[in-house]
Amino acid sequence: MGMAILVNENTKVLVQGITGREGSRHAQYMLQYGTKVVAGVTPGRGGQTVQGIPVFDTVEDALRKIPDINTSIIFVPAQFAADSVYEAIDAGIKLVVIITEHIPIHDALRFVNYSKRKGVTIIGPNCPGVVSPLRSKVGILPNHIYTRSGPVGIVSRSGTLTYEISYHLTQAGIGQSTVVGIGGDPIIGTDTLEVVKMFEEDPETRYIVVIGEIGGTMEERLAKYIGSGKITKPVVAYISGRTAPPGKRMGHAGAIVSMGMGSYESKVKAFQEVNVPVARTPTEIVKLIKQYIR
């Protein structure tokens, strides 16, 4: 079908860390949303069930029993999360969504590079996950916000801010194709540019919203790519952290201006140079999108 990106009605999800508090709760929410959650893994808990979902000791066991698993979502605590990521990659799962927060950055660097060598897509860590409204949700985004599918693709470094912008878009009658929370850490599996490229290829997505923040150079690199003419769909952006002082980490580990890189001004300038409008407030995104739709 090739509609929406990353997750759709064919997504069959394995939940790693399913017996934990967050894992079991969100397995339930995902089921309620309509996601096909087909298995869970917690070492030592094989044979149990959570919300009616069978639990296995290892990812390999789960795949042997349920071979059409194609996506894993990880809720395993930070100290053990890296191990779970390698387990999913080595078992052959091609999309791994890491919700876990506080994974050491050197661990993330290694498993992200490993995933690239193995051709595996990682979303996160420290992210809210992915939702293609009315089709499938692999993440912790609130179900009641994502009630309308439509032409807008969203890629974001933030959680709550994304829910807020999605909410306003839906209120204005504008649905979303896929919403991707890529995570707030300095090293992440899939960056803004990679997601925007996916949206460009997706026939359902007609407009792209980029929610960025200070720190790193992802937005600048995206702007450069847009400048090369390879993105034909309209892109609008919002960047948070205009008033953040340099050298201070603003909640997200990745939201820090250092070595003169990653400032608000540099990102806004990069976008403006390639005619990507930048909203002054989150709600202004809706107005900007409406101008294109009209």
Binding site: S156, R157, S158, G159, T160, L161, T162, E164, G184, I211, E213, I214, Y238, S240, G241, R242, T243, A244, M250, G251, H252, A255, R280, T281, P282
Partner: peptide
């Protein structure tokens, strides 16, 4: 609540 929304709120105060 949330790092992005908190930064956006700071920016709004400045605005």
């Amino acid at each position: 609540n949330g790092a992005g929304l908190t930064m956006a709120t700071m920016d709004l105060v400045k605005e």
